[in-house]
Computed example of a mutant assay.
Amino acid sequence: MRILAALRDHDERLTRRLAAWVSPWARRLLPPVEEAAEHTKLWWAAAAAMAAGGGLRGRRAAAVGIAGMAVAELLSNAVAKKLIERPRPPKEWIPHHDVEDRPDSSSFPSGHAAAAVAFAAAVAPSWPLAAAACPVPTLLVGLERIHAGAHHPSDVAAGAVIGLASAALVRAAPRLLLSG
């Protein structure tokens, strides 16, 4: 029990610290990141660019990226959020106006983080050079979700784990289907 209490306390402190970040850089960069991440637009655009400019390798990378993202969205939003009800960080923790525009669904896990990590991790083995462009926007999506008060850091971490598992599942699926 003490371990869970310590984790909750750390989660609260980190949420408050990241939400209170008042850097002009963050205030300019994070709102467009939020807009791009809504409805996975950022990752659909990346997949379209890969498919259009990367030949067969690009189309394969785009396809596995989208598949990984779809599995992550299913696991995080349709399964985990239904099983685990967790409130969003309290508005009092968030010292800026972004807190007004938050979803009503469970905070746990972050579907945005799950989709971002799943896309990046699924693309990496297919086209490592294209995947090299994914970590920065992926990290910014997770940071933005905490800064905006939509998630606790542990929600983002859980989303990342779901994203990694989703990418692994998508990457393994052809081998599993062929061996069975």
Rank of each mutant, 00 (worst) to 15 (best):
G159T: 09
D155Y: 02
V33M: 14
E35C: 11
L169P: 05
P31I: 13
E92H: 11
P109M: 07
L30D: 05
G68R: 04
A150R: 09
P135G: 12
A19K: 01
R57E: 14
R86W: 11
L29H: 09
S110R: 09
D104P: 04
A46M: 04
R16H: 09
K41I: 12
V79R: 02
L178N: 12
R86C: 12
H152V: 00
L14W: 01
A67K: 02
S76N: 04
P128Y: 11
V71W: 08
I3Y: 08
A78Q: 12
L164K: 05
D101G: 06
E144M: 01
A157K: 03
A130Y: 11
C134F: 14
L169V: 08
L14T: 02
M69T: 13
A37H: 03
G149F: 08
L74T: 08
G149P: 03
R175I: 08
R171I: 14
R145M: 12
L129K: 15
V161W: 10
F119T: 07
W44F: 15
A49E: 10
V64D: 01
A67M: 03
S105A: 05
H39I: 12
L56V: 06
W44G: 03
L129D: 14
L18S: 03
H10Y: 07
S154H: 10
E38V: 13
R28K: 15
P31H: 12
R13H: 05
L177Y: 13
H10R: 09
S23P: 00
A132L: 15
V71T: 11
P128R: 15
S76R: 06
A118K: 00
P137R: 11
L14S: 01
A148R: 01
P125H: 07
A48H: 08
S106Y: 03
A122F: 05
L14C: 02
V141H: 06
T40F: 07
R16Q: 13
W25N: 03
A131L: 05
V136F: 15
L177R: 14
A115V: 00
A168F: 08
A118S: 02
L4V: 13
R13S: 05
P31L: 10
A47G: 06
G159Y: 07
M1Y: 11
A5K: 03
V156Q: 01
